[in-house]
Design a protein around this nucleic acid. Sequence first.
RNA 1: GCCCGCGUGGUGGAAUGGUAGACACAGGGGACUUAAAAUCCCUAGGCGCAAGCCGUGCCGGUUCGAGUCCGGCCGCGGGCACCA
Length: 895
Amino acid sequence: MGHEPARHWTRRAPRPITRQTRKAACRDGAPVHLTGPPMSRYSPAEIEPKWQQAWDEALTFRAERKEGKPKYYVLEMFPYPSGRIHIGHVRNYTMGDVVARYKRATGHNVLHPMGFDAFGMPAENAAMASGGHPKTWTYDNIDTMVDQMKPLGLSIDWSRMFATCDPEYYGQQQALFLDFLEQGLVYRKNAVVNWDPVDMTVLANEQVEDGRGWRSGALVERRELTQWFFRISDFAEDLLEALDGLDDWPAKVKTMQANWIGRSRGLQFAFSTTDAPEGHDRIEVYTTRPDTLLGASFVGISPDHPLAKHLERDNPEVAEFCAECRRVGTSEEELETAEKKGLNTGITVRHPFDTSWELPVYIANFILMDYGTGAIFGCPAHDPRDLEFARKYELPVQTVFAPAMGEEGTFILPEDGGPAYVPPKVETVRYLKPFAGAEAMTGDEAVDAAIAFCEENGVGQGVTKFRLRDWGLSRQRYWGCPIPVVHCEACGVVPEKKENLPVVLPDDVSFDQPGNPLDRHPTWRDVPCPSCGAPARRETDTMDTFVDSSWYFARFTAPRAETPTDMADAEYWMNVDQYIGGIEHAILHLLYSRFFTRAMHLTGHLPEKSREPFDALFTQGMVTHAIFQTKDKAGRPVYHFPEDVELRDSSAFLKDGTEVEIVPSAKMSKSKKNVVDPVSIVSDYGADTARWFVLSDSPPERDVEWTAAGAEAAHRHLSRVYRLAMEAAGAGDDAGSGDEALLREMHKTVHDVTQGIESFGFNAAIARLYAFTSTLAKADAGGPAKRQAALTLAQLMSPMTPHLAEEMWSLLGGEGLLADAPWPTADETMMVESTVTLPIQINGKRRAEIEVPKDMGKDEVEAMAMAHESVQRALDGGQPKKVIVVPGRIINVVV
RNA sequence: GCCCGCGUGGUGGAAUGGUAGACACAGGGGACUUAAAAUCCCUAGGCGCAAGCCGUGCCGGUUCGAGUCCGGCCGCGGGCACCA
């Protein structure tokens, strides 16, 4: 290391350069250390670009098939090119990088790619807001983000990068679509969308605010359009069953998916109607609780049910009610949280068990046409929604079952004002109105008995249904993958020929008016019919962006292939061994991807093993930051940037002395002014500090709060490590008295850090590295032992802080690039301790501890514990009731 | 509303059902320095002079032993099919 450059990495980096420079000059002028080697400071600005260049030149992270070497595919969920990387990205990619670098060091051939999920609404919104083009906006953003990501020193094979808006990518996606179409995996049907009648455009759910279009403010309507659907529901059973085999997925994600797919066993049967219009003499209903049939008090149908639509035609009251229901948004959340409303149709149905018992038929706003048959019977006593509805419309409430004998407790019958009684189906309850099976049964048993009874008596049939609906992929938007079909007057819907792919988006479009620019493009729609050659029109809908992200991981295995995938590459690289991303994708993205890989297998684009594409999944938490706020005169919050706030004694103040309220751990958002920009962190402290910090402190699956103090501490620690490495490099060749102790600790650290990384306990691994750094700093060891310890420390830190580690490696005389060095192994014999400390509990509370040889017998341990003065004191001359000795763990004396 | 999580010192957090608070931040004290910065050392859950007592959101349960398992409640977060 030569002389220091002008730029210095001082404690508080965001200081003006002039001051730093002055200080540096002053320091360099007077020798700080009069003895020993010249002491250089840790300078990430210098070493980080140096090592990044070294890795680049050596093509260290270029992934190539190497038969015979175990492959490892690690992938972080690719980003949307919003324009700037976010500290959450840094955390996500750093975690992936730790895994990637660790796997490289343990002899794996690693694939670690990066790309961009580049289609979507923000690009169009930006174009509408500031007049640019979505394409320019997107590619500019990608350039910026790549520039921001590269300095992080991620071990990514950048040669495989692509964006989903590249025609080379979406053209292959169109080929997939055509193959799916041919295979019968895609079809068209009507579906409702949010329609803005003023802007004449389809709105996404997030563009609907309180039932109004976000730009026009117009009341949103539901409108039916013919749209394309993937038959994901055909795979419901398989997608559900296969969850069992995903051993390395978080249980919570599997539970969420299982609930989403929602397999249920129930009874489907028909009520016969009275006074209903022709063709509606039966109403089919589906129920998962046929055991409550004797508690039925009304029948509810969806406003979109055929009977409701029929009545609507010549009954203005019904028409108005249905119209009102349709003003509620299309999302399940809105339907469920809206006030329960119904309209009595005047039609009644006969109860299947007693034809003299008539139930009223209501059109109800909380019944979905998409689920079951779009009609239900209401049992208010055992369903909170039905109870709310029954109380509102003064319908009867009749309890069917009550808590089992002896567990009644404070049970209040729902008809007496109690809440709806909905115990878990595995719980045994007492049936007050049984019609099948015993009086005391579990809900599950009762449902089975009820289905059997109904089937025997010809009332209905047991059926299995799924909540999972088919995946609607049509979007009435420009910035997405065009659906490659053509509408021909003579031939109908005709797939585009594969040789005509990609169907490329036209560049000459404008966003000065709402609606889909593809619809109003002068020529783009006009094409000859691929079948008969007559003039025809292109489909102007584009694909849901979830399609783009449902197979990008497969494309990374052969990103430039002329077909969607290359089988040899897919065979070699698939599956993704470790997938890392946010929990917010637990359901949709992951479920759609699991469907897509199944469909890609059926159409010959992926091997059988890739039906489940992600062998292991890790869901990481968010990065949060405190919000600094004051209140204006009206009491509304005013937000302040962290750099405008001074922290004094855990309170915060503005420059003018106003005290600021600190809201801790809030999700970062621009409007709250609590966003931390990774770029400034990297330029202030270096990438290694940023990487080290986002991994320390918080377990990866949990949120981590970014604090300036924490980042400084991380930087201080790395400087210390660097100093220790310098010291070790310059130390003599004599042995020291603490050599063995240091090396013992080193081996334990190797073991613990390895475990930490293997189990995604990055924060624990880092805590261990802190401890070992302390040990090394204090060790009374000789030069050789210190150098060995420092080299190992560099290796153990290399997945987290690769540049610093590489620098230490070269300082200490390591061979070649550390990035190519094998992972250290712990010598088990160095880790064995001869004695163990056992805590002694008295009645479960720790009162003392004894140190015993590791292999001491249980009886001897017990005798030693009993002889201990605090045990004797507790016994007070008596005998213990019980003594539990867990060898190597604990002693508990019960007195 | 429904599904899934999470809740531990002043703060971020650690803890295969077995010593609650590792490691770190902020704090307090000290060393070095003319001084400051940097660095290093010590201290540190609460209450108590102490012996000791109390402590993992709240209430209850299982267990020799519960932060961890079970039930109920409260609070916060994620998802709810056109945000990505």
